[in-house]
Design a protein around this nucleic acid. Sequence first.
DNA 1: ACGCAATATTGACGAGGATCAAGGGAAAAG
DNA 2: CTTTTCCCTTGATCCTCGTCAATATTGCGT
Lengths: 241, 241
Amino acid sequence: MPATSPAREKCRTCRLHSLCLPRELPQGDTSELARIVQTRRPMKRGTYVLQAGGHFQSIFAVRTGSVKTSTLLPSGDEHISGFHLPGEILGLDAIASRSHPSTSVTLETSHVCEIPFTELEHLSERIPALQRQLLRIMSRELSTEQSTTHLLARRSAEQRLAMVLLDFSQRFANRGLSARHFRLPMSRSDLANYLGLAPETMSRTFRRLEARGLLSIAGKAVVILDPIALAELVDGASGGS
Amino acid sequence: MPATSPAREKCRTCRLHSLCLPRELPQGDTSELARIVQTRRPMKRGTYVLQAGGHFQSIFAVRTGSVKTSTLLPSGDEHISGFHLPGEILGLDAIASRSHPSTSVTLETSHVCEIPFTELEHLSERIPALQRQLLRIMSRELSTEQSTTHLLARRSAEQRLAMVLLDFSQRFANRGLSARHFRLPMSRSDLANYLGLAPETMSRTFRRLEARGLLSIAGKAVVILDPIALAELVDGASGGS
DNA sequence: ACGCAATATTGACGAGGATCAAGGGAAAAG
DNA sequence: CTTTTCCCTTGATCCTCGTCAATATTGCGT
């Protein structure tokens, strides 16, 4: 069986090439990266990608499916800090402490690539473009995280929901999917948790936005009917009516 | 006057050495770093270190004083995303987009070091330890940002205040100052904004915690009287009485 | 296809915090 | 030292959202 060729191809032929680590890397360098990336069997829904407290060894890239990341608060309940779609990187928050501060679980059957961090660091010493891309990804992560913070500070349930829906709309669009029709991969209570709301409030807020004709929701299937009104809602403008 | 020696010394002799970029760098490499770092005249209270929308060119390190970072929401009001103490790095969230997503202003007379990013990147290609430290700092920033998110999600005014006070206590302690007596560098309304609360709620919450003997506050001067009870408050334990 | 369990909706109620409005005190300006 | 201004504090009221409880629905296993 061919030993090196398929391995060296796997990042280059990946659909997510331009969203993930290999972005803007020349072909030869992408092959070098691919050599250290470990692809694995698909993980079933509810499988741990990494666990809080566990020793940091690798970062992970979502290839297909979706992942949620959460931390268990001392009080016993969890707080979900994010959802990850294909092309996004997990585990970057563990570099400093050498141990994972949070836990990541698949929300559905998912493919995840493992990238051993020590090898990645060594590789990026030789490939400056890879180093730059790594910093870019972390920087982007930082801005994303800050937006999440804004999402939670002093915003109404409606605004929070509108924000997260537009965020998903954008992210699906970046992956070549529809910005208007999509399926939320997480449960209602997970979404509520992420937004800092009670599940009941989520439910009511969905119905209210639906009644105003801004969107339509059936189970996990969302249709964005009026993206402009949703955006105005987020901006705090009293746009409606 | 001596031309190179003082410049090459400035990071090595800086009190914040171990909190900042040079951490764990051998002396020679620290000198190389110091050569690209630009120290500047002290900035008066209210001076912009960097402005949202501005072209990204450098990252900044707080040397003395303190800085707040905020973004202006489309609705017109600002949201403060963080406060920065000596040794902390600003502007890392701009690497990806090449333009600053937020604005940073000094809260008091402050010294800030400017580190041109392109030069830092080149330097870190030659000095792997510097590259590692850069990644560590960004990773740490990422965890901090996540804690902030937890701070805001589903927590009462009391818990938020307790969290932020313990956070400052910790950070002051890391800088060799008292963990029990310190001076908050920002105004009440800035703190309230950061915590996603109305200033009035802040005020009342301070008084309530003071009445319970957990702390004492006079103007910006804080005394932590019962750090354990504060920590229990944060953890959601119904500790008191 | 059936039945059970987990998840989602809906309603009623109450609490925590925002808002509105006014008064007090500390820092800055003269 | 006095005056002004801004910020902080305090009080009263309203409203959003959390909580409790019951019902409906979906998804899962057999």
